[in-house]
Nucleic acid binder design. Sequence first.
DNA 1: GAATAAAAATGAGTGTAGTCATAAATGAAC
DNA 2: GTTCATTTATGACTACACTCATTTTTATTC
Lengths: 235, 235
Amino acid sequence: MKQAVGKRAAKGGAEKVPPVGRRERNKREKLDRILASARDLFAAKGFSDTTTQEIAERADIGTGTLFLYAKTKEDLLIMVFKDEMIETSQTAFRKVSPEAPLVDQLMQVFGAMVTYHSRDLPLARALIREITILANPDRREDVRSLMRIIYSGIGDIIAGSRSREKIRAGIDLALAGEALFGIYYIGLIGWLNGQITKQAFLKRLRAKLALSVEGLRVAPAEPATPARRTRNRKS
Amino acid sequence: MKQAVGKRAAKGGAEKVPPVGRRERNKREKLDRILASARDLFAAKGFSDTTTQEIAERADIGTGTLFLYAKTKEDLLIMVFKDEMIETSQTAFRKVSPEAPLVDQLMQVFGAMVTYHSRDLPLARALIREITILANPDRREDVRSLMRIIYSGIGDIIAGSRSREKIRAGIDLALAGEALFGIYYIGLIGWLNGQITKQAFLKRLRAKLALSVEGLRVAPAEPATPARRTRNRKS
DNA sequence: GAATAAAAATGAGTGTAGTCATAAATGAAC
DNA sequence: GTTCATTTATGACTACACTCATTTTTATTC
């Protein structure tokens, strides 16, 4: 419904009824204040030690008003860090060395994400927790867009190393991206839960990626011990 | 410390100081009552609509007593369903057809897990949420043991199809198990978040597993469309 | 079984996320 | 600028997870 109205107005250009009246601007400003306050407090005191009261106070709004802008405190967390995570991902993909071996490129991307989360582990835990299982369906699209960026980014990396790494033709790149991201994600969770150190996580991750990438090749790479392998093939 | 005492007593049999005095037995019974009450209520009313008061009442204990047995309500959720999930996993691995193609076997296992979660989606969401990021380190060992069972179970499946599927030698089976489970997990999350239907999830999962399994092979399998593929290759 | 120590249980109390009836602000129409 | 309708704001209030000072139960020693 909202959209129907919006479309109509948009069709004729921003002529007479600019879609940003005082009302809209006020709302936008208030939201910005809320998000800034939440971000500062989450960073300073952690997620669970920050009360919605404090956020409201700092944003200079009533306690109830906060919940007109975010359904729950958890919602706020995603709203605050969604953009930052998208940014981090995009930067990671942009900075990748396109000439490096596929697994190295993947490790560059995932490494950047790990570095991002390392800045504040308790916050990373809270964030991953909320993103993993969304309490509010309104946030679905946020996560979906983040995932699209990641999956297609990985897909691009695969496509880019197609010739160099003898990647099989006809592979669904987004599918492969999702699979590789899943391999990263399960390790990330183990790390964030203290089941494994960061070093061990990254080492295992590389091994798992290598394992999975082998499957993308037309022919398996030479085994680590190259010479004398005349045993199997007959033809 | 408890164990040290227990071991000593156990060594001599249940002679004079049975390791289960009235005290221990009472505690055990109370815990059982708590877990049973929690399970019933979570199943009947859902996790968030169940109050700790109700659980305590039904277990016939004081409201504060509950928290001597579980640090938080979320803790209770894991304690209640941990065994059930381990059971489900073990059964799934036991029932697998050892002659079936590797990917089919994997799908049997993951399919059983999906079926389990399908019984109560809201509860599955709550459970996965808590397991993914543990609020209480005391539960770490629970999750670790569940994961060990799953990773090694998958590893066994891979080992079992080694000859049939020309699996490369020298593969770290637990590592491969973790990778494949990660591929499942990321899809599970998408499903539980309503990003994808169950059908689509399972279909994509099979495709992703196939993609990754190819990497385990000495030589890639024939593509799905066998005949007439004279187009690409020249030699 | 009395005295003492240790463990376990209890429920009134506390802090906080989130609600809702009411009020204020904004925009539209004349 | 007055009236009216709609949107937005507000903070007192509620519900609930969890705490803690106090009490009760259990085990131990003589």
